[in-house]
Structure formats: structure tokens, C-alpha cells
């Protein structure tokens, strides 16, 4: 089957994951948004990396699999930033203001 490699100590990894989970749950109680952001998403990233590296054995996997996942996430980033200006920045729609009183519609026709 798969090649022989030393196993990580799975139970120890699990302890750390649970500790991180507790921290991320308690983070928002400080009620500082910046800290919540770090404890919520920073820790999510760390947890994800720990699960991927230890449980999914990515530590021992060929580099091509890392390329695969980095490529996937990069493309998602491209998608996000390509779409972001359209969904999030609506200040370009200045004509919304003048539709109500019809002032600029005729002028622009």
C-alpha cells in the first residue's frame, strides 16, 4: 500500500486542534473585531493546515499534490478579486440618485 513513513502522533494533533477550537470560540468574547478576525479565521487556517498536514498525510505526499491545492486556491483568489469590484463597489452607480427625480435621465439621453 502506501509508502512507509513515521506516523505523526494523531492524538496529540487532536489535542491541539481542540485547544485551538476553544480559543476560536472564546475569541469573540473580548469583543474586539480585529482579535475576533484573527481568532476566527487565523485559527481556521492553522487548523486546516494541521488537519491537511497530519491527518491527510500531506506532510509525506508528493509535491505535486501541494501544487494542485495551491493552484486551486490561487484560482479562487483570482475569481474573488475579479468579481469583488463589481459586487462590492457600487459607487460607480451614480445614476441611482438621479433616477428618483428623473433629473439626469433625459440629460443623458
Amino acid at each position: 500500500m502506501s509508502e512507509v513513513h513515521a506516523h505523526p502522533n494523531y492524538v496529540k494533533v487532536w489535542y491541539w486542534l481542540v485547544i485551538l477550537l476553544v480559543i476560536s470560540t472564546l475569541g469573540p468574547m473580548l469583543e474586539i473585531p480585529a482579535i475576533t478576525l484573527i481568532t476566527a479565521f487565523g485559527i481556521a487556517v492553522i487548523k486546516a493546515l494541521m488537519v491537511a498536514a497530519n491527518f491527510m498525510h500531506l506532510k509525506f505526499e508528493k509535491h505535486i499534490v501541494w501544487f494542485l491545492f495551491i493552484m486551486s486556491l490561487t484560482l479562487l483568489g483570482v475569481f474573488f478579486f475579479g468579481v469583488a469590484p463589481d459586487v462590492m463597489m457600487t459607487e460607480g452607480d451614480q445614476w441611482i440618485d438621479c433616477i428618483a427625480d428623473n433629473s439626469c435621465v433625459e440629460q443623458r439621453l
Binding site: 484560482l75 483570482v78 475579479g82 469590484p85 463589481d86 463597489m89 460607480g92
Partner: peptide, 18 residues
């Protein structure tokens, strides 16, 4: 090919800078 998609939407009201 992953960074050209919005050329289908030039007149759809996308951000002109994009």
C-alpha cells in the same frame, strides 16, 4: 484563460477599471 472571463461582460455594467 482564467483571467479573461469578464470580456464577455464589457457592456454588462462591470467596473470599467476591471
Amino acid at each position: 484563460s482564467f483571467v479573461v472571463w469578464a470580456h464577455h461582460q464589457f457592456v454588462a455594467g462591470i467596473d470599467p477599471r476591471m
